[in-house]
Design a protein around this nucleic acid. Structure first.
Lengths: 207, 207
DNA sequence: CTAATTTCGAACTATTCAGTTATATATTGT
DNA sequence: ACAATATATAACTGAATAGTTCGAAATTAG
């Protein structure tokens, strides 16, 4: 019962669709969007040109699929870091540390597809997708802050929405500096300092 | 005495070098680096192809000149916002507001050359330049914080270096969201909230 | 084994682009 | 006016690129 869908009729494909998309991610990551040619994708994905067009479409379509798959993976990891059972402070610090770690792991592909590559793509659909992803990230952090209020880790008047946006902005700042070569160790330290910053209680209304 | 340098010999140029570079800035800003062709620059700068190569060099050379001029202008504006005589809080808020305003002024060229375009350029010299610019920005903010300590606006143990980096990271986060279309009004509000955040006093060592 | 179906590999086409060259034009110096 | 110099205009060249076409290869259905 391992193949409930009968094998299709003609010659079988010589590539795996998911695997090819994964490889395409690396290609876009290391060369940017405009810098990638179809030949780069053909070489990097291990898919012949005609098959590539037939199965995936043109460069823009491939990039959109890559971006969606990437966002899903990254979002899941971020959610895991954020929502696993631990102190609020560790959650936020993990979230920021994860951003740094994933942005510094490969020398040939620093940064983040969604932070460093996609914003430059001049395409309405890509832009819409980014907006919703950015909003989704902030919403996730905000939820964690609210749980923190329930647990008594932060005061009930903690500005959850504002601080959530600030967390994601700080993450983007760290990611961008990862891209231009700031070393991981430095950024990890700063990630912890950022977590400390956003957990500071609001200033008491004085004067 | 308006031309102490005698007019050069041959046919006079039909373009102004500074002006052409300014136009080139717009071209790179709106199309990214890889997205720009020499023809784009010829059209946008109002300089014929051979003159363009003779006077400015190739695309990379033009971009480097554009980037340096842009960084100088922007750095001067940022320094002005930051170091003009006003309260520390207004200084930091102005710095962040300026980042937002300059990143949202043109529909066709949102974001910032140094935040949104240059990091993607795969070039060692560009990267070095960015690193020094990033460091310079943080140093400027740090200096302002130190002045704030002298003036008694913030406590002497205020972590000036850490907070300075955080200010610039937040500015980059705001700029990036400007690029993907977050409205100016929203970002200006968040700039003020960010200024408030980074001025919060350090948590008293408890526990 | 044969026909039908799907993919693969390689070559092809039209376009775009970077950088150069050739010729015409505008200006200074004498 | 004429030589010398520097820029402008337009056309050229070779390379890279996107997308397509066509025959060969691999597989299933009967």
């Amino acid at each position: 019962m391992i193949q409930n869908t009968a094998r299709p009729r003609g010659r079988p494909r010589s590539f795996d669709e998911r695997d090819a998309l994964e490889k395409a991610t690396q290609v876009f990551w290391s060369k940017g969007y405009d810098g990638v040619t179809i030949d780069d994708l053909v070489a990097g994905m291990g898919v012949g040109r005609p098959s590539l067009y037939a199965v995936f479409g043109d460069k823009r379509a491939i990039f959109l699929r890559v971006l969606r798959a990437y966002a899903e993976r990254k979002g899941a990891s971020a959610a895991k870091a954020l929502l696993s059972p631990q102190s609020l402070r560790d959650s936020i610090a993990d979230f920021l540390r994860y951003a740094v770690e994933s942005a510094t792991q490969k020398r040939s592909a620093r940064g983040c597809l969604m932070v460093c590559v996609a914003p430059l793509v001049n395409d309405a659909e890509v832009q819409r997708f980014l907006q919703s992803t950015v909003a989704g990230g902030a919403a996730l952090v905000e939820r964690r802050f609210r749980d923190g209020i329930s647990a008594g880790d932060i005061p009930p008047d903690f500005p959850v929405a504002t601080r959530a946006i600030q967390v994601t902005d700080l993450a983007r700042g760290l990611t961008m500096r990862a891209q231009i070569g700031t070393p991981r160790r430095t950024l990890l330290k700063e990630a912890e300092e950022a977590a400390e910053l956003v957990l500071l209680p609001r200033r008491r209304a004085s004067k």
